[in-house]
Design a protein around this nucleic acid. Structure first.
Lengths: 213, 213, 213, 213
DNA sequence: CGTTAATCGAGACGGTACGTCCTGTCTTCGG
DNA sequence: CCGAAGACAGGACGTACCGTCTCGATTAACG
């Protein structure tokens, strides 16, 4: 077994042209599109069948299996393809920047990304490689967050004893949990991002602004 | 079709005894036991088949379907039945209590509860009733945590501007995410519970105690 | 008809008083009636389920199993209970008597007995005891037929070289086959009983009557 | 849902080749063979399960359901496939020919065809199309018989007032009944074919040949 | 410019599991 | 003890997908 499953990116390292008919790009698109369609239209991820994807894409099942080794990888690729939305832009105060960065996480529930992700968690748990590939996907946003935190520390806006990674986790995890999973009804009406950021400020919010700068 | 699926709680509405042979308690146990056995022995939740549970429990499939409408509810009931371990006990300082309370959450990864839960998230997301029943399961521990936080605020150990719910979320969510899902490699060696608790102390850990205030 | 439905346990006809509550005759009737109802209303014999009979009779399944060892015996008893119609009466000439005796056999197709019997053939084939009990059921009619044939031979109306059993078989079998099973379309409009009897007359029908008598 | 179940004849309406992988002829054979094996090895027809056929044939259940809409049609096709043995050949006297033609019918009891057929009668009764297809199967033998009878009438060996169809029915029906169903014990040792044929001879067997007539 | 070889759609293949139904047995209750 | 109700273990039903395979028909680039 020495199959080459190109999985999307398909960086054909070398110039060695494969003989025979090349793979149809239209099929790729149609498959991804069909997958997202089905997921968005309510199909639970675990109940998504390759058969249905093939039918909706107007494609033979083998055409899918030729590209993706299994259902999960297809779904991950499909999800990755929608993840391309631009992240938030940076503004004036560190507090505002953090809040702007965090807010969309809490609203995942409402978009199709939030509908799909929780169902992948089980698979992510079992398949570390997949988890890594997913984490690479979200890395840019996380890096952005870390940078803002670092800036906050250096400007004195945030507590000096902050560990950047720990702070990032404390800020994002509650939102992710709230966004993906059922969440705590006691937090329903609360402006969670602001409240959390305030807890990490060097000076309690509402108090005098940080000494200088 | 007017089936009664009793699912565990078995609230005998009234004293009216149901006619016919009563359901066997041994079957109940055998089914739950078989389910946990299979899950603990590596079967991915989504791949757990009623057929296999029935076979291992030495029970007809109908006996399972008579009690649980679907696989997910069976799994939730099964999981609920193992969750009964007593939570941590309270000690001396608020900081130590919090850490003692949080530490086991981060170690879920290693026990079978941590193996099972992530796979249920998708189902929890779609099925609010199920989510509620699950949340009732974890409520005692959450309440304990909230109490300790409240105590910390009143003694002045924790920041006065803490929202109890927000603080609880910030402390638990990172651990849950780290425990259930792959998590951040940058946090691998870190004593997350301690680091997080320290960030919510009124006075940075190691510094002088709060100035009366 | 003196049906003793005890089929199996049998021997209720003694004075030995059984202790406890006696079996309800209403249940017996209801079960038989329900069985015939279901069969007559199109249910294929092989698809008749004890469950359905019990439900329609308003009786527990165990009540049926207590009386009949299995489905086939229940059906046979049920069929036996409708078989009690009086056989034909004997008249003037042997030819007319035979025809009168044979005609109803050909019309079985139209009554519910004809609907039910063919489905029992398979069972009769495998279960000789059952076959014997069925044959006992039809014996009176067959004996009547043999008697008429014997009379015909002695009066000279029928061929002298007739074997009574063989003649009876030749007269009844085509009608049974035609009545129970699909039958030959070429025989659809034909007055089969008359034609067959004529072939066994000593003198061809329409020719001069037998010499003496 | 617009499935085509080809069931044997497979009249390819047009030359238009169906796309996709063609159906495997080996599977066809294996299924039929397994069906006959099971039936011949004692399985009552009504108890024959598709599951068992599939298992013995080494075939998926779907492969069977793709070809036959239900169990009965599968069985009929299976039976049809064994019925192909050449019928008897014609000889010298009409009497001998008839007897040679009839004898195998009475011996059906002993071969697997005789084991299987009675169980199909119920189905034949309910399903006229099926009955027709079965009757087509036996037609060649019946036609042969009719021909011999016609020859017997024209040569004067058989009674002149015979109706061919009626005579055929009288000769075959008793044998079929005796062969398929339990039958009359009084006929057990009798050479039924010979006895019956003799009754239709113009001159009683052993007597002088017909007087020219 | 015809080979050659991998692609395409379609759909059959051997399987597994589904959730329903029925079997024949058992276990309870109330009469 | 009977009758009803209904749970029990078992097993077949017919369906839906799985992941693989085999078709005839396209496509390119290579020779």
């Amino acid at each position: 077994m020495d199959v080459t499953i190109t999985t999307g990116t398909g960086a054909t390292d070398q110039d060695r042209k494969t003989p025979g008919r090349p793979r149809s790009a239209r099929a790729d698109e149609a498959i991804i599109e069909a997958t997202l369609d089905l997921l968005a239209s309510g199909t639970p991820v675990e109940a998504l069948s390759i058969e249905a994807v093939a039918a909706r894409a107007g494609v033979g099942k083998a055409t899918i299996y030729r590209r993706w080794a299994n259902k999960e990888q297809l779904i991950v690729d499909a999800v990755a393809s929608i993840k391309g939305e631009a992240p938030a832009i940076v503004g004036t105060s560190v507090r505002d920047d953090l809040i702007a960065l965090l807010r969309p996480i809490g609203q995942m529930r409402k978009n199709r990304f939030g509908m799909i992700m929780p169902c992948l968690l089980g698979e992510l748990r079992r398949n570390p490689e997949l988890a890594r590939s997913y984490s690479k996907l979200t890395e840019p946003r996380r890096e952005l967050l870390r940078e803002v935190i670092r800036r906050g520390i250096s400007t004195g806006e945030l507590r000096a004893d902050l560990d950047v990674e720990v702070a990032a986790a404390m800020l994002t995890a509650p939102l992710i949990l709230q966004g993906m999973i059922a969440g705590n009804p006691a937090l329903e009406g609360v402006d969670l991002p602001a409240k959390m950021v305030d807890l990490l400020l060097a000076t309690p919010a509402g108090a005098a602004p940080p000494p200088a700068n």
